[in-house]
Structures are given as C-alpha cells and as structure tokens.
Design a protein around this nucleic acid. Structure first.
Lengths: 338, 338
DNA sequence: TTGTAAGCGTTATCAA
DNA sequence: TTGATAACGCTTACAA
C-alpha cells in the first residue's frame, strides 16, 4: 500500500496524490474527492521513512535519559513526561535512548545514524562526551542541565547554587547553626555533575555568609541510602539540626532515619531542599522546597530544540529557573539536640 | 556525508563500501583498509532512514504509554525502563508515544506511518481500539496486559485475579472478616480496564469462599486519593480490618489515612496487595505484596515482539505471572477496631 | 574481487 | 490542472 497504488486506483499520477495530500499545489475538487475516496477506502497513510529520506528530516527528536536500569527520579520522570507531551503537541515523535556504560551503542545509533532531527540531553556533566559527539555530528541539541561552557549551547537548568544558598539562609534565619548539604551520589559528583558542584558552591558561600557549621555529604538516589546517610550525620555531627538537599529520591529515607532516631520534623530537625513539585507535595510530611517546574522546563527544552532545528545558525538560548521556596512545614525554629 | 562520498574518496564503488561495512561480500584487505581509513577520517555512519527505506524495516519499536500528563505509576515506570533496556540490548530503538485523549494523533502517526516494526502496548482495555488499529494495520504488537480475546494476540500479564484472591485468603487466614478491595480509578474500571475487572472477579470469588464481608471501591492513582479512600472506608464499614489492593500509587496515602485515624499497621489494620517490587520494598513500612517482576515482563514483551516481527505468521505466545506474596509486615492477626 | 544499476516510497521540479 | 521524472542514501541482484 503506497502512493503509487493510490494513484493507479484513482487514475492520476503519484504527484497529484502527493499534492492532494499536502495541499502544496491546487488540485481540482473532483480529483481530490476521487483520491480521498480511495485513500479512505484503503486506509492509506504515507510512509514516514520515505518521507523522511526525501525531506531530509525525521520529525523525531531524541531524548537521552540516564541508564534506564537505575530508577528515574521523580524529577527526571517529570522531564520525560513533559518532553513527550510538548513534542506530541508539535507533532514530533520522541525516540528514547539511554546513555552511559553499555548503553552508548544506543546513543551512537541515534546520533550517528541521524535517526532524529535533534536531541534533548538529560543529566549533563560539566564536561560531557555526548555534547562533544553532538557538536561533531552537527546535530542540534538542547540540554536539561548545562556544561562548564554554557554559552556554547542551548539549555534549560535549575539554579541549584542560588536555591541551596536560599535554603541555608532560610534555615539560618530559623536559628540553625549546624546544617548539612545532602548531595546526589558520590559517583555523580565525582564525574563532574553540574548540580552537585553548583549546589556545593552555593552551600559553601551561604554557610560562610551566615557563619554556620556546614557539612557536605553525598548520598545515593534512593530511600535506603537516605536512612543510612542521616544516621551517619546524626552520629558524626552532634550540632547538626538541619539538612538542605538536592537529593529528592533520598528524602523519604531521611524522614525515616530521623524518625528512627526519635527526632520529629520540624520540631527537632528541619529539612529544606530542591525537588519536583509533585514529589514535594506528596511526601509525608510535605517538603519545604524550591519546586522545580519540570513541566515548564521540559516544554521549554522542546521549544528551544525546535528553534535550533529550524535555524541551526541562530544564537543559543537558555532558561535558568530559581523558583521560590514553598514553605510546607518541614522547617521550623532550631532546637538543640541534647 | 554519504556513502557516495566515501566511495569517491576511497576510489571504489558505493556497493564496495556497503559490502565492506556489512561484510556480506568479501572485500580485499587493502581496499577494506582504505575504505575504513576514509570512514574514520570523516566519521561516516550510514543514514538509518535510507537503510530503513531500502530494507523495509526501521529497527525501531513503538512503546505506547498512558497519557504522559498523568504520572506513571512505579510499575509502569518499571515496564518502560525494562523495555528500553531490553530493546537496547537487541539493538532496537524505542519510539515513545502516548495514546488516549488528545494523544491519539501520536499513536496514529507511529502506527499509520509505519515508523516502527512493531509495538508494545501498555494499559490495555478489555476492548481496546488500539488493538483494533494495529490489527487492521497488520503491525506486529505485544500487550503488557490483554484484551478479552487474549488468544488473538501475544501478551504478558499479571494474574490479578489469582493474586487478589490469594491476598484475601491470606488476610482471612489471619482472622480478618471485613476486607476491602481498593481498585484503580473509577474511570479505568468503567472503560473496561482488565486488571480492575479481573481483580474484582478474584476478590468476589475469594470472599465467597471464605465467607467474609467484602467491599469494593475505586480510588484514583495518587496518595491523596488513598487518604480519602481510607477515611471513607473506615467510616462506612466499621467491621473493616484489612485492605487488599492493586493500586500501588495510593498505598502511601492509605498508610497516612490509617495513621490519621489512629490505626497502626499491622497491629490494628492489615494491607496486602500487588505492587512493583521496588515500590513494595521502599514503602514505609514495606508492603506485603505479590511482587510484580516488571523487569522480567518488559524483557519478555520485547522478546515476544521480536519474535512476531521475525515471523508474523507464528502462533501467538503469552506469559501470565502470579508471583508469590512476599510477607513484609503490613499484615497481621485481625483485631477488632475500637 | 569489484562495478553497475535498480529500487525502496516519497516530494518537488520542470513540462505540458 | 495535471503528469513524467529525478532525487533523497542506501542495499543487493546481476555482470564483469
């Protein structure tokens, strides 16, 4: 079932069928109707592959996620959902690909084979091989996150540096004098993960400004690690009364760790962080946090990518969000622990 | 940058380059090396679209998820992750598409345009229009879930009927005489969602066998609804002391609702259900549940799809899992309320 | 061992 | 208003 078959059955040429479909050339009403009747009868739909070859574009974008084996965080899931959604609204399909470790074949296939018109990259490192690949391939891309030379790409990002500093200030305002930063995993931080580095920078700046005791620690992206992380912090730092965090996946574990230590939130211990709104609202208790608008960021990433695809020579654009901290009740006045 | 350019620069014909790459015809060592040198120098990779057009297959599978706007449940996320993973291992890419409501354009594009070699369908209804579309299009597909005529398709599924019956028996064994089934959302159940219907059937059967009081209720897929659902149940059914559920997303809310009612789990109230293992283990307290092996099911779905693509005339295959219930401590001996 | 050429299903240019 | 035809980049049957 192809355009030739439709042409034959309607007694016209293939080009006429094509034009009847695209409307790029006038077609008489009678022939158009005849053609449409045949199309409806046979349920013909143009072959996307052939069209892509001819037009030189696939109408597909690639979305590069972290290795799928490790669970996506709530925020990452929010990005995926909003990208798929926004792409769909623009009649673009989304090719999902993971990268990292043994998944690099997939990335290579998608990028090298030009299966997509452009790419959205998640979980970018300060120095990121994938960015290098994409530049070399001349494929338009947009980062959810940015490298250390952010002027040379389009991106959307969260201003972790500012947000974590704000969390510290908020906690210091409440009288806290011992504050921990619970970071993402040590592997991420070690491989130059931007949010880790920038959050750390903001943390150092703020604790210096407020002259509070600050301790920085990494924690894997899951609840269990959150528990042990808190256990360790409580033992090693008796003066600690608050946590600022960018590790949303570990927060439920932190709650549990504190509870097991007999500490009540926010009476005995405060937590503030950066998290997807959905998660922050649905945690128990709801988390005082800068609510990352994953929807907006994902949609913006698609918008920027469409722009770059349309005009690869256009100047780069970006969006850095620093949403306000929503007070939800996990932060309160400091109270010394014994 | 195409195969012709490589051929020109290596002083051979295009077919020789193609054969050097595919190995489907012997190529002398010297020419092969010359070609490879040019390829390496220019970083050439064959265009996937052209290859797809020529070969008549895209090396891509479609994964149809529920509308992305509504949050994926933990189990659904597990399916997506394992499908992407398994497809990657088979050198297949995954085109993500949502269906339902305004997303049907996307489904139509993917299926009608033959952008994929086959499709994996999630959240199937007993009567499902998408299945009809796929059959009409003659596109291989596999369901994660099955319709009311499961003999006519390949699928993997969870035996909710058996599993919920087992939950009821387990609870009845513990002395519970008032047991509620907390189902997925009313919309899903109303539109003929298989798991809802089959779980309900298993529930009715088991409560009849054990002569306990059973109450069935639907609940939206989120924690907040879980809270209000439990509140309502407790008020309306004073004899209720246990819940069996297939609604994993609502479980955290159920915990909270019980806590707010002053009931402790499992001392005062028991919960057992069907849930993804990851979630069951990470809930607090960990949920006694039949652990759905999302990894295995996703991988199997990909395997069955590859099989159908290779031989569309082969007989259908399926996999129905009924994993054992893992006791984790949310079920205990019945104790009358008040 | 290598080259020539047809063809996959479209779109778009050039003619009529 | 419509048709014939080249072209997109690749694979492969057929020749040499």
């Amino acid at each position: 079932m192809n355009i030739g078959e439709i042409a034959r059955r309607s007694g016209v040429s293939r080009s006429t069928v094509s034009y009847a479909l695209s409307g790029k050339r006038p077609v008489s009403d009678t022939t158009r109707r005849r053609i449409q009747a045949v199309i409806d009868e046979l349920g013909y739909r143009p072959n996307a592959t052939a069209r892509a070859l001819k037009e030189g574009r696939t109408r597909t974008i690639g979305l590069i996620i972290p290795p799928a084996s490790q669970r996506l965080t709530d925020m990452q899931l929010g990005f995926v959902a909003s990208v798929v959604d926004a792409a769909g609204r623009a009649d673009l399909d989304v090719l999902l690909s993971s990268s990292g470790g043994e998944h690099d074949r997939s990335f290579e296939r998608v990028v090298g084979g030009r299966r997509v018109d452009g790419v959205i990259l998640m979980e970018i490192r300060l120095e990121d091989d994938r960015v290098t690949s994409l530049r070399r391939a001349g494929l338009p891309f947009v980062g959810i996150g940015r490298t250390s030379d952010p002027e040379e790409m389009s991106w959307v990002d969260i201003d972790y540096e500012t947000l974590i500093a704000r969390c510290v200030h908020h906690l210091a305002d409440l009288g806290h004098r011992g504050i921990a930063l619970v970071d993402r995993s040590a592997e991420l931080a070690a491989t130059g993960y931007g949010p880790s580095h920038r959050a750390h920078a903001g943390f150092l700046r703020a604790i210096a400004e407020r002259q509070v005791e600050g301790v920085h620690t990494c924690c894997a992206d899951d609840a269990t690690s959150g528990v042990s992380c808190v256990e360790r912090l409580l033992v090693e730092h008796p003066a600690l009364t608050a946590i600022a965090t960018i590790n949303e996946a570990a927060v439920p574990g932190m709650y549990r760790g504190l509870e097991q230590a007999g500490l009540s939130v926010p009476r005995d211990f405060s937590i503030a962080g950066v998290a997807g709104r959905y998660l922050a609202e649905n945690l128990h208790p709801p988390l005082t946090a800068a609510d990352v608008p994953a929807d907006e960021l994902g949609a913006k990433a698609v918008e920027l990518l469409i722009e770059r695809i349309a005009d690869p020579a256009a100047s780069y654009r970006d969006l850095l969000v620093s949403p306000p901290i929503s007070l939800r009740g996990t932060t309160g006045p400091a109270r010394p622990r014994h």
